[in-house]
Write a protein that binds this DNA or RNA. Sequence first.
DNA 1: TTGCGCGGGGAACGATCGTTCTCTATTGTA
DNA 2: TACAATAGAGAACGATCGTTCCCCGCGCAA
Lengths: 203, 203
Amino acid sequence: MATRTGGAGAAPEANEALRAQIVRAADALYYSRGITAVGMDEVRSTAGVSLKRLYALFPGKESLILAVLRHRHGIWEQGVEAAVAAAGSPRGRVLAVFDFLAEWFTEESFRGCGFVNAFGEMGPGFPSIAQYVREHKEGFQARMAELVREAGLPEQLAPQLALLAEGAQTTAAILGTAEPAEHARAAAETLLDASDATAGARP
Amino acid sequence: MATRTGGAGAAPEANEALRAQIVRAADALYYSRGITAVGMDEVRSTAGVSLKRLYALFPGKESLILAVLRHRHGIWEQGVEAAVAAAGSPRGRVLAVFDFLAEWFTEESFRGCGFVNAFGEMGPGFPSIAQYVREHKEGFQARMAELVREAGLPEQLAPQLALLAEGAQTTAAILGTAEPAEHARAAAETLLDASDATAGARP
DNA sequence: TTGCGCGGGGAACGATCGTTCTCTATTGTA
DNA sequence: TACAATAGAGAACGATCGTTCCCCGCGCAA
C-alpha cells in the first residue's frame, strides 16, 4: 500500500522535468499572446501532458503563471549577468545591461517585458502576481545599484539608469524597433560622464 | 415615416453626450481593473444605459476600447500641454513633462500608462488597438522632439527624455511610489546640462 | 490468470463573456 | 381614443474559460 509509483508526491526528478516542460510551453504562449488569451487546455496540448497531470503539478492557473514568471526571472538574470560578465571595466559592466537589451530587442519574438505585461493584465485582481512583479523589478533596481556602487559612481545614478532600461523595453515593444536600446545606452553614457565630471570637479 | 426620433442616426448632440458618458465609465473600469476583466454588462450598468443603446453607439467591445483610448489620449495631451504652458523658460517646458508625471503618480487611481497596459493585454490579437497605442506613443515622441527643438537642444535628446518618462510611468506603477518622477526629472536635467556643456564647448 | 489500483484522455460542469433577441410599456400622432 | 413605432430591461444564445469527474486500458502483485 506504500508503493506510490506516480502522482505529485513521487519520482521527484521526473516531475521536475515535467514541470519545466509545462512552464516553458506556458511561457511561450503567455508571452506571445497574453495570459488571459491562453487557456489551460492549450497549455496542456502544447506541453503534451494530460490535464490531470497539469493540475497535479500546478493547483491552478495562478500557480502556473507564478511559475512562469519565476522561470522568466531566471532567464532575465542569466542574460543580464552574462552581459555584465562579458564587460571589461566597471563602467562597462554598468552599460552592459543596455547591450543585453539591444540584443533582446532584435529577437523575433520580442514583445516587451513579460513582467510589465503580466502586471498590466493581471495586476488588479491577482495580488500575488502584482507582488512578484514588484519583487522582480526591485531586484533589478538592487542589481543596478550594486553595479553603480562597484563602479564607484554616485548611487542616485542607479534608479535613473533603471528608468532608461525600463522605458527602452516598453518603447521598443510598442514602436516595434530596437532603436530605444541605443538611445538608452547613449543617455546612460551621458549620465555616467556627467557624474564623472561632477566628481572630478571637486575631488 | 421620416420621423426618426431616436436611434444612432438622430439627435446627434444627445448621442454624443451618451457616448461620452459611456466612454468615461468604461475608461474608469478598464483602467482600474483591466480591459478583459470588465464585461460589457458592467459598462452598461455603470454608465446607466441599456445594452441596446450601448451596441447602437459602439458596434462591439473593440470599438468601445478604441473610443476609450482616444478619450485617454485627449486627457494625456491636455495634462502635458497644461504643464508645458505653465512653464516659463524653453528648458522648463521640456522638463514640465516630468512635473506632470509627478502630479499624476500621486493620484490614488494611478495604475501606470493605460496605453501600455492595453498594449500588453490586447496587443496580440487586436492589431487596431496595438496600432493606436503605437500612434499615441509616436505622438508623444513627436511632441517631445518639438519641445527639444524649441529649446534649442540637440534633437537626439528627445527620444532619451521620452525613455525616461516612459520608464518612470512603468516603474511608478509597479513599485507603487511616485519617486520615479523625481528620478526621471533629475536624469533629464543632467542630460540637458550635459548637452548645454557640449554645445558651449564648441560654439 | 485474475484482481486491482493508477494514470491518461476527454467529456462534463458551472460560470462568464460578447452579442442578439424578445417582450412590454410608452409616447407621439391621427 | 386607437394605432404604430420605439426604447428599455433583461432573458437567451453560443462560445469559451478554469476546473472536476468519469471511464477505460494498462501494468503489477498474488
